[in-house]
Computed example of a mutant assay.
Amino acid sequence: MTDKNQALRILDANRNRGCEALRTIEEYFRFAWDDSYLTELTKCIRHDFNTAFAASGHTLLAMRDTDGDVGTNISTTTESSRASNRDVVEAAFSRLQQSLRVIEEYGKVVSEAVECELIEQLRYRCYQLHHSFASITAGRERLTDARIYAIISGQESDEDFDKYCTEIIHSGVDVIQLRDKHLSDRDLIARGKHLRQILNTVDLPPLFIMNDRPDLAVLTGADGVHVGQDELTVAETRSIVGPDLIIGVSTHNITQVADAVREGANYIGCGPTFPSGTKSFDSFAGVSFLREVSDRFQIPAFAIGGIDLNNIAEVVEAGFNRVAISGVLSTSVPQDVVSALQPLLT
């Protein structure tokens, strides 16, 4: 068999392998996650993958020799068993990336059979898709039962902060974000370390998120960091906090949500939903934005902005069962607020 015919046979096998892997991934996003955005991304990659072979489909099929394939009877024990659907998808991504590299290399021998430049672009798009999948999966695992996300300030004194933190922690919230634009870095670090110490004394403590500052998140032992649209990117933040801390991103429109997913955010905040007593805004994304996010994305998402017991029904009706609250905690008894919200966010 000539070099060209050998290459065509290899291309045929890896075209099939790549198509099968893409379909496996797409079905997971479609039926397991109900995520129309990632389903659409995967479908576009699959269509472009087929386009790369548009000129050689019949040629590749003619070189197929399944009966003569010495690899059909070779298998490993791990191939016949998967522990979870996630493992199925991870295996599919592995097969896909290997197939794309094989196609890119052997396509150089028979360049007329495949668009190698397009295959190279698809390989990078698949790397990005895999990153999004892994990041959202990590966020979903860390935030599985998280429904109420409390945003607190550093308070006026150490004593006030200690008292307020203890009250918030025991109210039953799932996440606590420390956000204070007025404290010095030293004071903010001190508050963050104290919060960490209190959390370490509690069974099943809420997650601790530092606002805006990945450097301070690391120094205070936080579980994650939340950044806005004007702060560091997800990639820049990840380079500081490392692989284990979760990263949240504030989003105000659908384009920003899509960007957060592509960049590898673990969760997002969506808003502002209503006018807030703790933060002023020029405009409001509103409930319609929440509804659009709920319809298209399955990344963990918290509605934020002026949410209280008077408007929580609108948030839930829009498809959200996670909320971030701040002002309502300082004007009411935190435990009463949380106890009233919890049954509404199941």
Rank of each mutant, 00 (worst) to 15 (best):
I304S: 05
V89I: 15
T346A: 09
H182E: 00
E159F: 03
I198R: 05
G269E: 01
V114W: 01
T72E: 11
E20C: 04
S239A: 15
D35E: 03
I304C: 04
L344A: 12
S171E: 06
T78Y: 04
H131W: 06
R46V: 13
L11N: 06
V202W: 00
E236W: 08
K108W: 00
I10A: 06
F31L: 12
R186D: 07
H131P: 09
S339T: 15
H47E: 13
S184H: 00
P275V: 08
V114A: 07
A13S: 14
P205V: 11
L22W: 04
N50S: 07
T278A: 09
R213V: 02
R9D: 09
Y149I: 15
I209R: 00
F302I: 13
I299L: 01
V323D: 06
V227D: 07
V257Q: 12
S184T: 13
C19R: 12
R30I: 03
C126W: 00
G57L: 06
E26I: 14
R262M: 11
F31Q: 02
D34T: 14
I312E: 02
S280Q: 08
D259S: 15
I325D: 02
G107H: 02
A62F: 02
L129W: 04
D87K: 11
L60T: 15
S56F: 07
T51R: 09
R125Y: 03
M63K: 12
A285Q: 05
V218S: 08
A7T: 14
T59L: 12
M1K: 13
E90T: 15
A146K: 03
V88Y: 03
F133P: 09
L38M: 13
M1Y: 13
